[in-house]
């Protein structure tokens, strides 16, 4: 498991060798969650390194399909009526994982321990399709959802780059999110 998980995907993520075997992001994560956690335990990789190695690679066709649906839905006049079953399913799963992460990670003082939680990594693995959900969540939550955003959105688009206060960074991300996903505004 470890061996296959470390084939240098990072060299060219878009051409990773698992694409043919993978049918969805979930399958990918399920298949690689074990090797990711093994990497973390044995090599002491940081969440950033893990995300780079395992999560950012999730640009599968499945993700793009979801992303396409998400964008078209958000651009329509009425979000509620235009919601697809897929989107509802995604929202439900996100809410479940987010609730569980917020509860279970709160036992830690170590920020890194919070971010290495299985549900948090899975949410990152969902890619850009969950960004509007994360931003909406961050509006009412004081937990650090920004680490997930930082690992989904390309670094050069990070609206909170250089900001050293969580509160200010939250404001920057929410404002960015409202501009990008007009339905949130």
């Amino acid at each position: 498991m470890l061996g296959t998980g470390r084939i240098p995907l990072e060299a060219n993520p878009r051409k990773h060798p698992f694409r043919k075997e993978v049918t969805s992001c979930d399958d990918w994560i399920t298949a690689h969650a074990e090797s990711a956690s093994a990497d973390w335990l044995t090599k002491q990789l940081s969440p950033n390194e893990l995300a780079e190695k395992y999560i950012i690679l999730l640009e599968t066709h499945h993700t793009h399909t979801h992303l396409h649906v998400q964008h078209s839905v958000l651009q329509s006049p009425s979000i509620e009526t235009a919601k697809t079953k897929d989107l509802e399913k995604l929202e439900k799963e996100f809410a479940e994982r987010a609730d569980r992460w917020e509860k279970e990670s709160s036992i830690h003082s170590s920020p890194g321990e919070k971010f290495i939680h299985r549900d948090y990594l899975r949410i990152i693995g969902k890619g850009e399709q969950v960004v509007p959900l994360i931003i909406k969540r961050q509006e009412s939550s004081n937990k650090d959802w920004l680490f997930a955003l930082e690992n989904i959105i390309p670094e050069d688009e990070n609206p909170a780059k250089g900001i050293e206060s969580f509160k200010d960074a939250v404001e920057a991300w929410i404002s960015w999110g409202k501009k990008k996903y007009q339905a949130l505004a």
Binding site: W40, S46, G112, I116
Partner: peptide, 13 residues
């Protein structure tokens, strides 16, 4: 954190 001490990467403290 004391200013003269290093800030460290997560999980590598």
């Amino acid at each position: 954190w004391p200013s003269h001490l290093p800030r460290e990467e997560y999980l590598k403290e």
